[in-house]
Design a protein around this nucleic acid. Structure first.
Lengths: 198, 198, 198, 198
DNA sequence: CATGAATGAGCGTTCATTCAT
DNA sequence: CATGAATGAACGCTCATTCAT
C-alpha cells in the first residue's frame, strides 16, 4: 500500500490534521468545483497553514487522492449491507439505494472524483470506480440473476446509468433520495432484462 | 442571433481564422480537458497569434460558447432525420443513434460542454442540453408512445442515461457506435417501459 | 518646420482625414483621459481604418503632437485680440478671459496636453505652454505695468495660477466662465501687486 | 481603519516588504509617471518577486491607495505645527510652507496622487486633497481673517493656486523651497485680499 | 491608397510550491 | 514541527504597429 503522505505520522494530532485537510478539500470542491479547488483555500478552510499542509501532503494531487480513498472507503461501507442480503434482485436494489445516498450527499465531489481519480490513483482498487464495479459485478453474478453474455460490459453500463442519473438529478437540485432511487431502479432493471443472455 | 464575436469579419481569411480557433479549442479540450484549456494553447494549436484570437473573441469563455453553439448545430443536424420518421419507437431509436454518433466523436468535449454551457449561454436554446431535451421530449410525446406521468422528468432521466452511458463507454475506449447504441437502446426502452403512466 | 506627418498630403480629402483623426483624438482624450487614449479608439471615432491612420501619422505620439499644435493655434487665435488692446491691465484681463474660455472648453484635453507636450514637441514654440508664456510675457512687459524684478518667473507663476485654478474648477464641474474669470483675475492681480519690483 | 491589505502580516520582515513595495511605487511614479507605473516595475524596484507583491496587495490600485494614504499622513504631519500657531496670517504662511516642502519632495508623485486618489479612496478623508482642504479651511476661518462670501470656493481656489504654482515650479526644476514659498504666499494673500467678503 | 487582418511584447494577476524563522 | 513569507511559471488580455490584399 503506497502512502500518498510525505511522512508517516506517528502522533495522533497529526492524524487529526490530515483529516481536517482532507475534509476541507472535500468542502472546497463541493462548494467551488474543481476549478475552485486550490491548496491555499484548502489550508485556510482546514485552519492550517499552507506550510503544514505541505508537511503532510507532497502536493495538490496527493490531497485529492487521499480524498478519493476516503470516499472509496465511505462508499464501501455504504454498500456493505447490500452484500449480506440473500435475494438477488434485492441485493441490487440495496446497492442502488446506497449509491444514491452516497452520491447525493456531495454530488459535485462525486463527479470530480470520478473525473480525476483515474489520473491520480496508482493502485486501481483504491478507486471509487473500482469499488462500484466490484459491488455491481458481485450483484450481477449472484445465483438467481440471469447469466449475461458480457457481464463486465453490463456492469460498466449499469454504473454509468446509475451514476449518470444521480448526477444529473443532483445538478437539477433533486434531493429526494427515495424517489430518485425508484427511477434509477427502473432504469437498471429495465436495462438488465433486455441485456443479452449468455 | 447574437454573434458573440468582437468584430464582424469581412475578409474571407478572417472567417478561416475564426474557424481555426474554434476547431483548435475543440482539439485542446478533447486532448487536455477543461483544466488544460487555455487561450495560449488554443492560439498555438490554431497556428495563430494570441492577438488574432482576441481580435475576434472577447475572452476565453466566448470561444467556448462559440464552440458550444457549433456543437449544438452539429447535434441538431445529426438529429434531424429522426424527426421525420413516422414510427414512434423508431424515432427514439434514431435519436439515440444520433446521440451516440455525436458524443462518440469527441466525448471529452461533449462532457465539458455539458458542464459549462449553462454558465455560458445567454440564450438557453442555443444549448446542446436544450437541443437534446427538445428532441427527446418530442420523441416521448409522439402518438403511439405511452402517456407518462411526468414526461419532463422522464426526459431528463433518459438524457442522463443516454449521455452517461456514452460518456462512460467512450472513456473506456469503446468506439463501436452500433454496439453501444444497441445497449443504450436497451437501457432507454427498459426505463420507459417501467416508467409510471399518467 | 518639421512635419509630424508621414507623408505630405497633396489631395484635399487627405487633409480632411487628418483633421478627422486629430479631432477624434481630442474627443477620445476628453472623454476617457490619457489612459483611455489609444489608436484603435481614435481610428474608430474618426471613422477611419487603423491602416489609414498609420498612413498619415507615424505613431500614437505624432497624433497627439498634431493635436497639441492645433490647440496651440486655437489658443493663439483666442488670445489674439488681447494683444491689440491699448490698456495694460485691460490686456491681461482679456488674456485671462481667453485662457478661461479656452481651457474650459475641453479641460481634460488641456491638462493632458500640458502633461505631454514637453515630452513630444521637437520645436518648443509649437507648444501651448510657449504660446501662453509669450502672451503673458507680452502683457507683463507692456508700458504701464510695474517693472518686475524677475518677469520670466512671474510669467511662469501667473500661468501656473491661471491654469491651475481653471483646471481645478473644471474638474469640480464649474462651467460659469465669467465667474471663474473674475476670481482668476483676483488671483493674478493679487500676485502681481505683491511681486517684487526691479 | 480598513487596511486594504490582502493579509495582515505577522512577521516583521513582511512589514519591511510592504514598506519596500510602497516606497518602490513612489519611486517608479516619480521617475516614470503614471503611464510608467506598473506592478512588475514596482516589484523589481522593491527587490521583491511579483508574487510577494500580490501577497499583500490585492491589485495595482491598492498599492497606489496605500501610497496615497502614506502621503496623506506625511502631509498631515507636515501641516501639524501650522495649526498650533496663534496668529491668523502666520498660520496660513506656515501652511503654505508645509505644502511647498511636501510637494517639492516628490512633485510628480503629488500630481499623480491628486489625479487618482478620488477614484481610489473609499474614505474621502484619507485623501491628500481632503487634508489640504481641511487645513486651508481651518486657516481661513481663524479669528482675525476676513469673513469671506464663499469660503469653500476660496479654499478650493487657494489650493489650486498653491499646488499649481508648486507643481509648475517643480517641473521647471526649481528646488529652492523658501523662494518659491515667498511667491506662493504673495499669490495666496493677493487672492485673499481681493476675494469678496461676506 | 484604404482596409482590416495579424502580430507579439508587455502587463495584471493567480497559485502551487519552497524555505527561512 | 508550525508558520507564513517568498518565489516565479503560467495564464488572460490589451494595444501599438505591420503587412497582405
Amino acid at each position: 500500500m503506497t502512502s500518498a503522505l510525505r511522512k508517516t505520522p506517528v502522533q495522533p494530532r497529526a492524524h487529526v490534521t490530515i483529516e481536517q485537510i482532507i475534509e476541507a478539500a472535500a468542502q472546497v470542491i463541493e462548494e467551488r468545483g474543481l476549478l475552485g479547488y486550490n491548496t491555499n483555500a484548502v489550508a485556510a478552510r482546514a485552519g492550517v497553514s499552507i506550510g503544514s499542509l505541505y508537511q503532510y501532503f507532497p502536493g495538490k494531487d496527493a490531497i485529492m487522492l487521499a480524498l478519493a480513498r476516503r470516499e472509496t472507503k465511505a462508499l464501501r461501507s455504504d454498500i456493505y449491507d447490500a452484500r449480506l442480503d440473500a435475494g438477488s434482485r434485492e441485493a441490487l436494489i440495496r446497492l442502488i439505494d446506497a449509491a444514491v445516498r452516497h452520491q447525493l450527499r456531495r454530488p459535485t465531489l462525486a463527479r470530480v472524483i470520478d473525473l480525476e481519480e483515474e489520473r491520480l490513483a496508482r493502485d486501481a482498487d483504491e478507486t471509487v470506480a473500482h469499488a462500484l464495479r466490484e459491488a455491481f459485478d458481485g450483484a450481477l453474478r449472484r445465483p438467481g440473476m440471469r447469466r449475461l453474455a458480457e457481464t463486465a460490459l453490463a456492469v460498466d453500463d449499469l454504473i454509468a446509468i446509475v451514476t449518470g442519473m444521480i448526477d444529473a438529478a443532483a445538478m437539477r437540485g433533486e434531493r429526494d433520495a427515495p424517489a430518485l432511487a425508484r427511477r434509477v431502479r427502473a432504469a437498471a432493471f429495465g436495462y438488465l432484462d433486455r441485456a443479452q443472455t449468455a
